[in-house]
């Protein structure tokens, strides 16, 4: 029995019932830019980087399901321009100083911005004031880099059963909080799934920063698109 298929930028992609467009694309080793989507978790659908045109209609490919023979466009200038603008929004919303970030070279936000040729943040910066949380003996939280993907919220709640993280506030004041006055007072541990899902540099293991030399870091070696899963 043949699986139904759709075409993605001219390539035929098979899919199974219940799969989303991006899941089918990843299974076929085709890259669609994304940030809040992680194949191990239920799609959040918030970053909108993975927006594609499905039969001409724009939709987030992490939540939309393909239909047989659907025509999906992803790697086209119109969408890549929009994705770049979304990335620029994320860069000006927080404080993203790559040169001093331990995740530089292994950060999905940065690697995706490279992929989409983002030469500048373009917009005016918000320069928010977001204090660090260094209370935990093993881990540091640098909220300056949070893109509100809520993967840590999901991981801690659904995998670790701990509910260490949550989103608070509204609109441009949305922010990540922990389930106590500081991280050290929660049950957070380095063994938690939540410690390993941050696509940017918010949840950082202490004393291991910058151990991988420049030139050998994850995305120094290959662009994010070449790591087909894009993680």
């Amino acid at each position: 029995m043949n699986n139904p298929t759709f075409t993605l930028d001219g390539k035929t992609i098979p899919f199974t019932e219940g799969q989303t467009i991006i899941q089918a694309a990843i299974a076929a080793s085709v890259y669609i830019p994304h940030l809040c989507f992680n194949p191990e978790f239920k799609a959040h659908g918030s970053c909108k980087l993975c927006t594609v045109k499905a039969n001409g209609r724009k939709t987030a490919s992490c939540t939309a399901q393909p239909q047989p023979d659907m025509i999906v466009e992803s790697n086209i200038q119109e969408l890549n321009d929009e994705r770049r603008a979304l990335l620029q929004m994320l860069f000006v919303e927080g404080n993203h100083f790559c040169p001093s970030c331990e995740m530089s070279g292994q950060c999905q936000l940065q690697a995706t911005a490279y992929e989409l040729n983002m030469m500048s943040p373009h917009f005016d910066h918000f320069f928010p004031d977001r204090p660090l949380d260094a209370s935990h003996p093993e881990y540091l939280l640098d909220f300056n880099r949070c893109i509100l993907c809520s993967l840590c919220v999901q991981a801690s709640r659904d995998v670790d059963g701990k509910n260490v993280f949550a989103l608070a506030g509204r609109g441009i004041n949305s922010h990540l909080i922990v389930n106590a006055s500081q991280l050290a007072e929660t049950g957070f541990s380095g063994d938690d799934k939540a410690a390993h899902v941050c696509p940017v540099g918010v949840i950082l293991k202490k004393r291991v920063g910058f151990v991988v030399p420049v030139g050998q870091r994850k995305y120094d070696l290959l662009p994010i698109s070449a790591l087909a899963k894009g993680d």
């Binding site: 860069f91 404080n95 993203h96 100083f97 790559c98 040169p99 001093s100 500048s120 943040p121 910066h125 320069f127 928010p128 004031d129």
Partner: peptide, 17 residues
Amino acid sequence: AIGACAINGGLPAQRNH
């Protein structure tokens, strides 16, 4: 504009808070 500081303020902008 050349370099991080010209492009997003860079290290000097860490005083912005």
